[in-house]
Write a protein that binds this DNA or RNA. Structure first.
Lengths: 335, 335
DNA sequence: TTGTATGCGTTATCAA
DNA sequence: TTGATAACGCATACAA
């Protein structure tokens, strides 16, 4: 390549690496190099440039569930929409590390290490092994986790602002006159869950409604737990609105809806329901009041954060705002 | 690392590279190396090993429409499902080249050159520039195009067997007694379209029904063209079944369905309809008789072909079979 | 403004 | 059974 252009390998590197601005290279030489590169279809080897301690404009994407699962419901597709757009905007290509989920031959104790091929790495899915992540982080390798995460320490993340979003939903309930509100959540103390719970309490407190742990109903098995009987007990105790945490399966939301109709009740006439998240794709009936996760924007924000890290800077605001979704499942308290 | 284990760099590579079986290494040495690696958390640098091995186990994916468009309808998602699975199975990671569609800064006259960064490259979307493709192919760079394609010469491709699929659909019609069948297609002579037309004719001929160009109705603007009047004219001329080519927009299929109901007719009572492809996602009413594109399998087949090229071999069968979809829009001819 | 020399961490070849 | 040593393709400090 260098020979064909009639220049040294250094010059090629300078021109193609964009360092031509800093070092000053004659337009003539530049033209020669670019011309030759084009004719040959020459592109610097990313592994080589990586090895020589430069960057290769590659961002890795590691997902600990199939990136394109057959079951679209749990897919990262919506995130990737934003990831791709922002990566393109920032001049990065994406490396999809495959098979990290399938537990195949490549999913070893060091699967994450493959990420080092790229300049930095995005990690999706909360099943990413903390020890492997820690190693990357400790080595100063740029990693951004999609979703709030406390471990390992020092890991950068980008997540949805569940606290604010939940607060807004509860605020809406209180503004409509509800005072006795209950939170139903599944028993899985991940940040996404505890954040919503915090927002729930904050929303009530901000409106001057006293709250406490007694308002939170944690259930391991929503189907057996959220029965018509339980529902009637709540109503009898004065509860007028129920807030449900969204989970992968939406089990609690489904169970509660079933319980309402099985009890011969109507939502929102007899009881108001709010969903802290998006309804499942197969949801029927009125749109649940709640909030939507801005998945594409989250993906984009993650890429921006990662780009900042790669460039040697610090990512800024890790929280992305959720959009309040006015629905049809909340009304004034009965009577 | 090597020093800490008290062995040479070579030995480390041998042990960690799994080549220990071929070369034979003392259990003692092996233990020392593994122990040291464990303590240090040492893992071979992928960039370095790739540089040395001259292969990087990366397959490029180039799409000339956004890979993750907001409009899911035209997305490559279903293909990527298969691509990811097969790539994982074959031990490849994927490089998604971004911005080739958006016409951004990176979508220049040489966007495709970036593909050389991988061991081979998959190209999706029929708008891939032929000249850039030719260059890659001429240079012996492994490229596989998803979808049949004749240009540039020598380009490997993997596509659906539209001929056989269309023949099967027409065969079903004839078997049910239809003799006067018409093909409606949009006016875009791409292989996917001409193949279906060929299958249409072959299906009729195979059943002993004479056919010819007069049976094919090409329309540039389905909405204005496929009117109730036209429909009645066909029926009056003895036509009992209409076969429609599927396109991106499904315009013809939609228009025809509208025409049927506007004419006060019933499908399949008064006329049978068949769709050479999948219905649009927003399709309502009875499932159209026709065939489905096995997108995931196509993606997988493309990866297999590419892997074969990368390994220096020749890809085998480029055609992937479509699945006949018995629907509810075909019945016996009226009267 | 451009070329020379060196090193990045690994694999592969050959010698011991 | 193991160890030197030479690529691999690039970036970078330094010399010209």
């Amino acid at each position: 390549m260098a020979q064909l252009a009639g220049v040294s390998q250094t010059t090629v590197s300078l021109v193609l690496g964009g360092k031509a601005d800093d070092v000053a290279i004659s337009a003539e030489t530049r033209r020669k190099v670019l011309g030759a590169a084009e004719r040959l279809g020459y592109v610097p080897d990313p592994a080589a440039s990586r090895l020589a301690a430069a960057r290769n404009n590659l961002l890795g994407v590691f997902s600990f569930t199939a990136t394109f699962p057959t079951d679209v419901q749990h897919s990262y597709y919506p995130f990737l929409v934003g990831v791709e757009q922002e990566a393109a905007a920032q001049g990065f290509d994406l490396v999809l590390f495959t098979g990290s989920s399938t537990g195949g031959a490549r999913a070893g104790a060091h699967a994450l290490h493959r990420a080092r091929l790229a300049d930095g790495c995005l990690v999706l899915g909360r099943h990413a092994p903390a020890d492997q992540l820690r190693r990357l982080v400790d080595d100063g390798f740029p990693v951004v986790h999609l979703g709030r995460r406390d471990e390992p320490e020092g890991l950068a993340w980008v997540g949805a602002d569940y606290v604010t979003a939940a607060r807004a939903v509860v605020g809406d309930l209180v503004a409509r006159g509800h005072r006795e509100v209950v939170l139903v959540c599944e028993d899985d103390p991940v940040p996404a869950s505890t954040d919503r719970e915090r927002g729930f309490h904050e929303g009530l407190l901000a409106a001057g409604v006293p709250t406490g742990p007694e308002r939170v109903h944690r259930c391991a098995d929503p189907e057996r737990d959220l029965t018509p009987a339980r529902l009637r007990a709540w109503l009898a105790a004065g509860v007028t609105a129920i807030v449900v945490e969204e989970t992968d399966t939406s089990a609690a939301w489904r169970a509660l809806n079933t319980a309402v109709s099985d009890a011969g009740l109507d939502c929102p006439r007899d009881v108001s329901l709010a969903l802290l998240g998006s309804p499942p794709p197969d949801h029927e009936g009125p749109v649940p009041t709640g909030f939507d996760l801005p998945r594409a924007r989250l993906g984009a924000a993650a890429v921006r954060a990662l780009a900042a890290l790669v460039a040697g800077g610090r990512p800024d605001e890790p929280l992305v705002e959720c959009a309040f979704r006015p629905g049809a499942t909340v009304g004034p308290p009965p009577r």
